[in-house]
């Protein structure tokens, strides 16, 4: 994929992860499966790219991690949203709404620009 799309996806991916973790703590695999499930498998992203995102989010203090045992007693790293993360989620959700609303306006506008050709 071209670079700028990856950039966009990275920011969006952060938002998706934060929202997913707002339901409770989860490990990386859980997050991937949830996103896949909720979007009906529409968003196909390389699952590996989840992990740099998770580490970055942890570095910024929006999520925290603990090691635990999974259902089948395997060692797994669980992430949880921090208070700061919660605030960041709220902020990004609202700016996402603003963004999509703006894009929607452009796409559904019936006003013609002055230089339009029939």
């Amino acid at each position: 994929m071209p670079d700028d799309t990856v950039e966009l996806l990275q920011g969006t991916l952060d938002l998706l992860v934060l929202k997913t973790l707002s339901w409770g703590s989860a490990h990386g695999y859980d997050i991937a499966r949830w996103i896949q499930h909720v979007t009906g498998d529409v968003l196909r992203i390389e699952e590996g790219s989840l992990y740099p995102a998770l580490h970055r989010l942890e570095k910024r203090g929006w999520i925290g991690s603990t090691w635990g045992l999974s259902e089948n007693n395997r060692r797994a790293k669980y992430y949880q949203l921090t208070a700061r993360g919660r605030r960041q989620l709220r902020a990004e959700t609202s700016s996402w709404s603003v963004f999509t609303e703006a894009v929607g306006k452009v796409l559904t506008s019936t006003d013609q620009p002055s230089w339009a050709r029939p």
Binding site: H27, G28, Y29, A32, E47, G48, Y51, W67, S70, N72, R74, R75, A76, K77
Partner: peptide, 16 residues
Amino acid sequence: RDLDDELRFHLESRYD
């Protein structure tokens, strides 16, 4: 080692 474990967990879960 932690990183190994984390990535391996994902792959093995998917495999399972």
